[in-house]
Amino acid sequence: MSKLKQELKEKIIEQLNLEDVSIEEIGDDDALFGDGLGLDSIDALELIVMLDKDYGIKLSDPKEGRKIFESIEVMANYIAANRTK
């Protein structure tokens, strides 16, 4: 699981162009949206595409993302339980 969390942090920084954020700065339980990493609605859509492309998880309802993308910890647990690739 820690490997997956590390992988997610790397992907988030690279794919969401978080130029001034390092992996060490993202805590497993930090909020990804709002006061945490400050991600926005377009970032949420990018994360939905990432789940599909990299882990074979299709979210039928984008609102599901609100809970799944709460933190790296929550994301990693969801991906581990639902991934198809």
């Binding site: 969401l16 162009n17 377009i42 970032d43 859509l45 990018e46 595409v49 599909d52 492309k53």
Partner: peptide, 8 residues
Amino acid sequence: YPSPAIFV
């Protein structure tokens, strides 16, 4: 896999 961040 169209990227929303590019599309906008």
